[in-house]
Amino acid sequence: MNKGQKVNIEKEKCKSCGYCIHFCNKGNLSLSKAVNTRGYLYIEFNDKENKCNSCALCALMCPEAAIEVYKEEKK
């Protein structure tokens, strides 16, 4: 799991169904070019423009429980 981001995806569990991509309002999720060990393309999180508001719709729709969502703590 790629910890430390707002959206962490356990790529080995991902089967590239695409639900999270579809329901992400910010367009921050996309399919990988490489495959995981089970032969699936997996979801990659890319928040270059810092648009992610940790809404967690991606995790909500994930049939694999492969997504964890975090948000920055208010200081």
């Binding site: 089967k15 699936y40 940790s54 995790a59 909500l60 049939p63 429980a65 969502v69 703590e73």
Partner: peptide, 25 residues
């Protein structure tokens, strides 16, 4: 970072054997 969504404890770490997009998972 504060957790908004994490995997429930009542699920094991085992990856399920359902097909992509299956509602079971």
């Amino acid at each position: 970072m504060k957790a908004v969504y994490t995997k429930p404890i009542s699920l094991t770490e085992t990856a399920n054997s359902y097909c992509p997009g299956c509602g079971h998972g």
